[in-house]
Amino acid sequence: MPQARRWGIQHPMHHALFFHGETLHLMPSGALFWPARKLLTVSDLHLGKSERLARRGGTLLPPYETQATLEKLDRDLEATGAETVICLGDSFDDLAAFDRIEDSARLWLARLMAGRDWTWITGNHDPGPIEIGGTHRAEVHLAPFTFRHIAKPQETAEISGHYHPKARLAGQSKPCFLADRNRLILPAYGVYTGGLRSHDATLTALMDRDALAILTGPRALAIPMPR
């Protein structure tokens, strides 16, 4: 964007979405920021995934994904100045994962939580509260939105995660947000997470025909949801 640089204009890297009367920033990292409330939402961090795989199957994946995910989250909190954080579930790869993540990671997380209103929504991988502080909820209502882990087909003004949606643009498949008039689904924020392509029947059934996919990457890019 040489043109923009020349005029000193900073193009926003996020995608601004007008959703139920509110402006939301869909960030290139996969986080959602709600400026009016200074609220940052992320979904499916899957912290401790490599540890769980090592524990279960003997596969020794590089054990740095918790660090990588926290670095990303740290940057987003810093950049947005968020005061409230909602993690939309599956924050830990399983219940034991929190106990086993390294002390340094646990301290890091505590530092991020300090001074912020932090809510952990229960996911399907980490059912039940864990010893970490913050508030633990099945869902959060913050008018006009409902935050929960898995989308409910009949709901509206809903923000959820769980599906790890992905879509392809210009030959590259990337984690993406899915948005229509009723719901917004967040991509998985964790570094070691697979994805479900947006044209999977589960997602096409859930989303309206005119839904958008907003791809993560160097900048958030909106396209009609591939189906």
Binding site: G58, P62, Y64
Partner: peptide
């Protein structure tokens, strides 16, 4: 051990 600089997997 996975050969990582960080020996996170001593248990596994």
């Amino acid at each position: 051990t996975g050969g990582y600089a960080l020996k996170a997997y001593d248990r596994w």
